[in-house]
Design a protein around this nucleic acid. Sequence first.
DNA 1: GCGGCCGTCAAACGATCGTTTGTTGCAAAC
DNA 2: GTTTGCAACAAACGATCGTTTGACGGCCGC
Lengths: 221, 221
Amino acid sequence: MLKRSFEPAPGCWMILPVNSSVSTKDRILGAAELLFAQRGFEGASLRQLTTNAGVNLAAVNYHFGSKEKLVEEVFRRRLDALNESRLAALAQVAGAPETTLEDVLEAFIRPALDLSHDDSGALFMRVLARAFAEHDDTLRQFLSANYGHVMRQFTAEFARLLPQLSKQELYWRIDLVTGALTHAMSGFGMIQRKSDVSENAHREQTALHLIRFAVAGLSHP
Amino acid sequence: MLKRSFEPAPGCWMILPVNSSVSTKDRILGAAELLFAQRGFEGASLRQLTTNAGVNLAAVNYHFGSKEKLVEEVFRRRLDALNESRLAALAQVAGAPETTLEDVLEAFIRPALDLSHDDSGALFMRVLARAFAEHDDTLRQFLSANYGHVMRQFTAEFARLLPQLSKQELYWRIDLVTGALTHAMSGFGMIQRKSDVSENAHREQTALHLIRFAVAGLSHP
DNA sequence: GCGGCCGTCAAACGATCGTTTGTTGCAAAC
DNA sequence: GTTTGCAACAAACGATCGTTTGACGGCCGC
């Protein structure tokens, strides 16, 4: 919207408004991520949200149209990048004869783990887990419509690597693995890393745990 | 409270007030379970809830004190019975030399699966999954204080059967299994049973899937 | 310098929230 | 017959919700 108004003069000096060290829109999105994670979509009020963001109450409806649209935008901002990374990682291994289950799972888990690196990314994982548990039809349709193809591509690759499983059996196992991963990523930090372990080493260990667990759950006889 | 007023004349004709085929309290609890599953704790209003239950708006605060206490009572009613069943089933196998991982997991999963048999029980599992995702401190403390000992007993038995795992490793795996099971039970019915399979057979199959998956996740090398 | 647009703001809108109040009907206790 | 206590009810409480409005100021193209 903001960018649209600059459209008549395309390219070049599109420095974006200089005063926006962090733009109002982004401040709202950041505050929304935090408050949605803490209080849920219904529990987070726009007044609390805009106060935390340091912007006017009306700014949400001005920039996003409604609270519901804001929720969608919070998801879109993160999931666009996340799923792009996942698909890129998957593309590097999909179809290759030497590809293992670990490789595919790594392509799925690693981008999410990287996202969880900074605090706000970890918060988003909580938001995502809440959304899963909500069983809200509007949100599920939005997620399915915009990102269903990612899940479908991964499923296809799993099916290739696990030809002995029936479709029914494969769906069951993927569903269970998804549950475990969502749960683990949203509770990230519950199993505290020891102070003598570096952040990087901790993430590496986490990825190992998740992948080994998922491999075992997917491929058991 | 209602029963207290009948206390002076104990026994015999305590038919309970005849008009209460279903008491007001239970009607509220039932409607709450449904509405909490559909709209969450914040999203469910007492007006909608009491309307669905066919009781007066003030009845909730009269019988339960507040909305928050009602939430706790919804959990207590189901979890008391559920965990009693789990502990009873665990007691039958815990410590025995011939006990397998499957036995312990069966003791944990079967009561929840039986609860999900009727619709309202399945709804409760959704409520439980939402509560997990909410990360609400009040609720978590309540759950931990009242039912933490169940998890602890099961963990101890898992530790006995998986002596090769470090404590850290065991916690990781139990956490992941918990996530998978919660996810699966809350989404119960997403993988539809075929019409030519009986309800009982479907439940049996579900239990098998869950247990095999959990065994693989817990005991992989 | 002027007009038009955009982002921000305080203020208010009607709706709905959880909770409280005061009354009524009714059955048990005395 | 009177008193007491419980349960249900309509009505209202103040607070807070998402959203809308209209005014104000700064920046652009002209």
